[in-house]
Amino acid sequence: MANSYTYTEAFEELQIIVAEIETGKVNVDELSEKIKRASQLIALCKMKLTATEAEVDKLLAELTEELPQSDSEPPEEE
Rank of each mutant, 00 (worst) to 15 (best):
A10S: 04
E33R: 10
C45H: 02
P74I: 03
A61E: 14
T6D: 03
R37I: 06
A10W: 01
P68Y: 03
E13K: 08
Q15F: 01
V18Y: 08
E62C: 09
A38E: 02
L60W: 01
N3D: 07
L41K: 03
I42W: 00
T8W: 02
P74Y: 11
T64H: 05
I35H: 11
I21A: 10
A51H: 01
F11G: 00
S4I: 09
P74V: 10
T50G: 07
A51C: 00
L59W: 03
T6C: 05
S70T: 10
Y7V: 11
I17S: 07
L49Y: 00
T23K: 11
Y7P: 00
K46A: 12
S4W: 09
D71K: 11
K25V: 07
E33W: 03
E20G: 14
A38K: 03
A38R: 02
Q40R: 05
A51K: 06
A43L: 12
E78D: 10
E62D: 15
A19W: 03
M1Y: 11
K48D: 00
E73P: 08
E66K: 12
E22K: 14
E77I: 15
K25G: 02
P68E: 05
E76M: 10
V18F: 10
V28N: 13
I21L: 14
F11N: 14
E78N: 07
E66H: 04
R37Y: 02
Q15K: 11
I21N: 06
E20Y: 12
A61C: 11
E9A: 08
L60N: 12
V56L: 08
N3M: 02
L60Y: 06
V26H: 01
E53Y: 07
E62V: 09
A19C: 01
K36F: 03
E13M: 05
A19E: 11
E77S: 14
E77D: 12
D57G: 05
Y5K: 13
D71C: 08
P68L: 12
L14S: 05
C45A: 13
E20M: 15
Q69H: 06
P68I: 07
C45V: 13
V56I: 14
I21Y: 03
Y5F: 15
C45T: 12
N27Q: 06
A61F: 08
V56P: 00
K34W: 04
E13L: 14
N27K: 11
T52Q: 13
T64N: 07
P68A: 09
T50E: 12
E73D: 15
E62M: 12
I17V: 13
Y7W: 04
D57W: 03
I21T: 06
Q15H: 05
Q15L: 09
K48C: 00
K58T: 13
S70H: 11
L59D: 04
E13T: 04
I35T: 15
T23S: 14
A61M: 14
C45W: 02
N27M: 05
E76Q: 15
L59Q: 09
L49E: 10
E65K: 14
T8Q: 10
G24I: 08
A38Q: 01
I17W: 04
E9C: 01
Q40Y: 07
D29R: 05
D57Y: 04
K25E: 11
E76A: 14
K46S: 09
L14D: 01
L31Q: 09
A10C: 07
